[in-house]
């Protein structure tokens, strides 16, 4: 049985990526020092580590869900904001495991096309396949579309309100 202890540092409230090891989403917990710890146990002697920052707007029915939340939240008044920068992280490592293994991932502040994190560990072998921050252009485009649609809805709503007011006062 091999165990992998991962320590993640440099995470922020608006940047909490998903840690996926061998296809399983591994939750991580905040420790006393303010960094995050995750533990993964496996019978295999290697592991594939993926660190993703997913964006909600990249979902399948993004337009439907976005509009649904817009209406449920009373035209976006009570809705929480979407990630404006659309910067995603993509890290992938293949590591060989032997007994107790420790890995440290120190994240940099998110910046387009820059290295996402520095990795260090006490593995017998270690391969870095991906390590980058980049702007998700599809997500950015979708966000712009949704912003335009929401603005149009607001304009229509205000225009309707004015028309109703004018009609009720007998101007029209």
């Amino acid at each position: 049985m091999n165990t992998l202890h991962i320590n993640l540092t440099g995470l922020r409230s608006n940047f909490r990526p998903y840690l996926v090891i061998d296809g399983k989403n591994i939750p991580y917990k905040r420790n006393a020092t303010g960094s995050y710890d995750a533990v993964y146990t496996t019978d295999k002697d290697s592991a594939n580590i993926l660190v993703y920052k997913y964006l909600e707007i990249r979902g399948k029915l993004w337009w439907l869900m976005s509009l649904l939340f817009f209406f449920v939240s009373v035209f976006g008044i009570f809705d929480s904001r979407y990630d404006k920068k659309c910067i995603v992280a993509h890290l992938e490592y293949n590591v060989r495991l032997q007994g107790e293994n420790h890995m440290q991932l120190a994240f940099y502040p998110p910046h387009d096309k820059l290295r996402a994190a520095d990795a260090a560990g006490d593995f017998p072998a270690f391969e870095e396949k991906q390590n980058i921050f980049y702007i998700d252009k599809i997500a950015k485009k979708r966000q712009r579309i949704m912003l335009a649609v929401k603005l149009l809805i607001w304009v229509a709503l205000i225009a309707t309100g004015i028309l109703v007011m004018l009609t009720s006062f007998g101007v029209l």
Partner: peptide
């Protein structure tokens, strides 16, 4: 540095979690 691989769609569970939080 390798060319960035576009991140695939969020898995259903992750997406459901995002919607729950929202």
């Amino acid at each position: 540095m390798e060319r960035p691989v576009p991140v695939a769609q969020p898995p259903a569970k992750v997406l459901a979690n995002m919607y729950r939080v929202r």
